[in-house]
Write a protein that binds this DNA or RNA. Sequence first.
DNA 1: CCAATATCAGTAATCATTCCTATTATTAGT
DNA 2: ACTAATAATAGGAATGATTACTGATATTGG
Lengths: 146, 146
Amino acid sequence: MSAQSPLHMTEQRRVILEELRKVRSHPTADKIYTRVRRRMPRISLGTVYRTLDLLAAQGMIRKIESAGTRRRFDGTVEPHYHIRCLECGRIADLPPGEMPGLEAHFRNQTDYDVVGHTLELLGTCPACRKDRTEGKDVGVRPASEQ
Amino acid sequence: MSAQSPLHMTEQRRVILEELRKVRSHPTADKIYTRVRRRMPRISLGTVYRTLDLLAAQGMIRKIESAGTRRRFDGTVEPHYHIRCLECGRIADLPPGEMPGLEAHFRNQTDYDVVGHTLELLGTCPACRKDRTEGKDVGVRPASEQ
DNA sequence: CCAATATCAGTAATCATTCCTATTATTAGT
DNA sequence: ACTAATAATAGGAATGATTACTGATATTGG
Ligand SMILES: [Mn+2]
Ligand SMILES: [Mn+2]
Ligand SMILES: [Zn+2]
Ligand SMILES: [Zn+2]
């Protein structure tokens, strides 16, 4: 959950971290790969995956794994929930902080030891809502954008 | 979310539904496939997937998709959350009902239209806790059992 | 009974992610 | 600086759950 061994900052690792921190979106590994390749054309997708795992293990970035969607990464490490648009897959941040009393609410309702939870809001983003009112009926195109 | 067209109950569909409703666990498609094959040896895995999708679309069963794990199915359609054991992947039911005030709590914190949420508790199941105290240190074997 | 339609079994394809390996870079010790 | 040991990378193959395709079989409605 927090930093481990002092990470050797290779060129690849530095650039991947920089590019992820540049964006406010929650890009997939191959979106990051595309960005990083502009600066390091010979980097491999495997290195991107390996490095993202490593940075996440060090607590320098976060992994977002929502059900049924591709893995996404987050340059913001401060704890916060996300809301995902069911039409376009876009993921937005909610304000920092955990839902108060959530785990406590369930502790006496299970024989498991509760150690955490995952919570994701679902909805329609402003752009897709706008498309709707304009009758653009684009259907569902999940996770298809940056 | 609720029933649509009146579903033609083929033998395959009936048996798949029966087998899923028999168990209290949350089996993967191939676990259901294994069970169903005892009664219908020639059924194909594709039919199992297709039928489970169909039954879920009709609201007769539920799909559970947790991040980074295989898809699981639930014969109980009454709304309820789950808690997943981080060591063995087992999924248990929490009592029926939604966390009160959850979506309301976030409505004024986002410009998305909130239409739902996913919530999964994480923890250690009684069996894995027991293994621990017995020093059986089995490591992590996610989603490897029924 | 027949033609149109739906479903199925069997198998191939998909595709995000992980694994493997030969090469290249870095480090620590002299 | 030189060198052996160690770590990291590029490129490509493998994995594995799910989906798509296809020709055969079943069902329906007239
Ligand atoms: Mn975020
Ligand atoms: Mn359940
Ligand atoms: Zn959207
Ligand atoms: Zn367990």
